[in-house]
Design a protein around this nucleic acid. Structure first.
Length: 271
DNA sequence: ATACCGACCTGTCAGC
DNA sequence: TGCTGACAGGTCGGTA
């Protein structure tokens, strides 16, 4: 579900609301997420630690924690929302949503609730710094992006989705940035010209910045930490516009499958 | 080493 | 109305 702009919006909202708060106790459901750390380890790390900061790394939400008195280190709580995950701040009395898998009760009386119907999300605690699987797309330099992609023989769209190269780009923003650059999603990455890479770099950073400014894209069920929807879906140029006219040349937008993912593009404008 | 494809889950919606 | 199947913003592991 959430890609870079949505996770960025959620992380900023969480930081604003829970930074400085302390986790008093943690409840984990009996059908928990596939946890990357054991439930006991998560409870042990979170309980009695203070949330210093909440930020995004790739598509992950990172809670920087200060360890309880008497212990050392700066533990982190890493949350990946998968397709349908939500991290909500709720008042303790509020009715819990279905598929709530973790509740962290805070000193302030509120609760952090992790909700994920499809259970593709992942929860993890770690003691060493988490840097994400790849490079940060919002700040990567053009030369570095070209170096990363140039030798790949996979379709350019599959390369964009590969989190070990750039982390944070998902299906919507891959399609949107390829449209802005005028590149066919199936074009092999090693055959994309330098000039097109310059356009892709520019288009990708522009679309991510615009989407963050709009609070992300709510296609079916994405909401931020306050339960609010984003509105960047209103500015999508190809994603979800199958059959509708291309905004450049009026040709109907086509939908195909690339790398196993639904892919939207203009067959005339994108070459 | 790299790339592809099915599996993992549940909810929703279109079509019959 | 109710059933069935396709599909969904993501990632992983096995196979080619």
């Amino acid at each position: 579900m959430p890609e870079l702009p949505e996770v960025e919006t959620i992380a900023r909202g969480l930081d604003k609301r829970v930074a400085g708060d302390r986790i008093e106790s943690v409840w984990i459901g009996n059908k928990p997420e596939p946890l990357k750390s054991s439930a006991a380890e998560i409870v042990k790390t979170l309980e009695r630690s203070r949330i210093q900061r909440v930020r995004r790394v790739g598509k992950h939400i990172v809670f920087d924690l200060s360890a309880p008195k008497g212990t050392s280190g700066t533990p982190q709580w890493i949350v990946h929302l998968g397709m349908t995950g939500r991290m909500l701040v709720a008042s303790a009395g509020a009715e819990p949503a279905g598929h709530t898998h973790l509740v962290a009760r805070l000193e302030s009386g509120r609760e952090l609730r992790f909700v994920d119907p499809r259970r593709f999300g992942r929860l993890e605690v770690r003691q060493s710094a988490f840097n994400g699987p790849g490079k940060e797309p919002t700040s990567i330099a053009l030369e570095e992006l070209v170096k990363l992609f140039r030798r790949r023989t996979s379709p350019i769209k599959a390369a964009l989705l590969n989190q070990k190269l750039l982390h944070g780009v998902g299906n919507i923003y891959a399609d949107e940035s390829l449209f802005r650059a005028g590149i066919r999603p199936r074009r092999r990455a090693n055959l994309v010209t330098t000039a097109k890479y310059a356009k892709l770099h520019k288009g990708l950073q522009a679309v991510l910045a615009e989407a963050i400014a709009a609070g992300g894209s709510s296609v079916s069920d994405y909401v931020d930490a306050d339960g609010e929807e984003g509105f960047f879906q209103l500015q999508h140029r190809v994603y979800g516009r199958e059959g509708k006219p291309c905004l450049v040349c009026k040709t109907p937008i086509k939908k195909i499958v690339v790398g196993g993912r639904g892919t939207h593009f203009c067959p005339r404008w994108q070459r």
